[in-house]
Simulated scan of single mutants.
Amino acid sequence: MTTKEVADKLVGYCRQGQFDNAMKELYGQDIVSIEPKGAPMEKVEGFKAVMEKAEFFNNMVAEFHGNEVSEPLVADNFFSCRMKMDATFKQGGRQAMEEICLYQVENGKIVKEEFFYTPAPRDC
């Protein structure tokens, strides 16, 4: 798949809330996932670790109310999109979140993802 095809598939899955399907089909085995400084899991490496990170996030959520994903912006073997999510967290209540997501594609698979947002303050 081309970078554009990967980007379109990822956006389609995300718009339908099928994040696990997106990861299972589109992520490479050696994926690197980077979150902003201060996030619970700033950097994880490998498909299994990324799936565990997603499960960790899902376990923090009491209820999803909706999400919105922009059209992808593709350049060379990179693409980005804006994601917005409305969710009620088990701790912290209902929040609207917004982020820029940057992905790198090699050989038809996403090999790196990086998310840009302001993390919520954590209790010490």
Rank of each mutant, 00 (worst) to 15 (best):
A75W: 06
F78W: 04
E68C: 03
Q18R: 15
A7W: 14
G108I: 09
F78I: 02
F56L: 00
G93A: 06
K24M: 08
K53D: 12
S33H: 10
S80P: 00
V74L: 06
M60C: 06
C101T: 08
G92W: 11
E114A: 09
E99C: 12
R15V: 01
G12C: 01
P40E: 10
Y117E: 02
A22R: 00
V111L: 00
N67S: 15
H65Q: 04
Q18E: 14
T2L: 00
Q16H: 05
R82Q: 11
F116Y: 14
N58F: 14
E98S: 15
Y27G: 00
G93H: 10
M51P: 06
A7I: 11
M60S: 13
E42Q: 14
V50H: 05
A96I: 12
I34Y: 04
V74Q: 03
F57P: 00
M97D: 05
V61N: 01
S80T: 15
G28C: 09
I110C: 07
D8M: 07
Q104T: 14
K4T: 13
F56K: 00
A120C: 03
K112C: 10
V11T: 12
C101L: 09
K37T: 13
E63R: 11
V32P: 01
K84M: 12
E52S: 12
M83P: 00
G17Q: 08
K53A: 09
G46D: 12
K109S: 09
F56E: 05
I100N: 03
P119H: 05
D8C: 01
M1K: 05
I110A: 05
Q16T: 04
Y103A: 10
K24H: 09
Y117T: 04
G66Y: 09
R94A: 12
N67R: 15
I110H: 02
E114Q: 15
N77H: 15
Q104Y: 02
V61G: 01
K9P: 02
N21S: 14
G38L: 03
E25I: 11
V11L: 04
E55I: 04
C101E: 08
I110E: 05
A87C: 09
S33R: 00
M51F: 10
E45D: 07
D30S: 15
K43I: 10
C124P: 09
Y13C: 05
K109Q: 13
R15P: 02
F115P: 04
L73V: 14
N107E: 13
K90N: 07
F57L: 08
